[in-house]
Amino acid sequence: MRQFRSMVYPYVLWIAIMIVVPMLMILLYAFTKEGNSVTTFRFTLENFGRFFRDAVFLDVLKRSLVIAVFTTVVCVLLGYPIAYVIASGPEKSSVFWILMITIPTWINMLVRTYAWVGILQDDGLLNHLLGLLGIGPFHIMYTTFAVVLGMVYNFIPFMILQIHTSLAKMDKSLLEAANDLGANRLQTFLRVTLPLSLPGVLSGITLVFLPAVSSFFIPKLLGGGQYVLIGNVIETQFLTSGDWNFGSAISLIMAIIIMLSMYLTRKVDTDPAANGRRE
């Protein structure tokens, strides 16, 4: 058993340098300001104060959260029926459809987001199709709708795959039991299928909410230069303004919000009352 144990040590050193040190640097920068001639830097909470005192930044944070929550809700509402249909079909077609959902996730996100630019133009494909139905044309590009659409398009596969996994794992005899005991299809779904698939929904929520809240190229490509989310603010601080202290503080605020929401989601998952499991 002892053989090969030492093979992990180089990797321990590597992650200490490449993962732990950069994370500590974010902490250090977030809580410091460049100093004067006496000290190279000094500890301060000023970076956080600047963020929370400024209505503009708070608005950006609020908008990012609203859009991320909205995207997540849309992904659940659309993703659940899709996963359900895939899971309830014959085995062979399930495998095929899961592959169909997976392939786009392997293609470059940036390329797939850029693909919508032509479709959403005022004289683009979507408005042409809507025109055939006698509606529109609408101005879609550079609106919140376009940004949410881009996020749903990029992130909904994670939701579908998670829900499908938990639906596929479900013990099918439970459904027969419910049926034998006189439950109709709606009752079976609400009392058996839905509660049992909830863990999949919850991990899907985390997988969608996290990239949605921190995304910065989707708002830039589909929302335009004026459309600013929290990720765009971080990008600007690091690549344009060069204020690493402030940028680190914003990233930390974002990371804490994400950790809190993941903690809450996990709490729902382990709480049997909220999970709908009744004795």
């Binding site: 950069p22 640097m25 974010i26 990239p211 921190s214 910065f216 990720g231 971080i234 680190s248 990233s251």
Partner: peptide
């Protein structure tokens, strides 16, 4: 989030 890893 990738952006956090990136700035680190």
């Amino acid at each position: 989030p990738e952006i956090v890893t990136a700035i680190g």
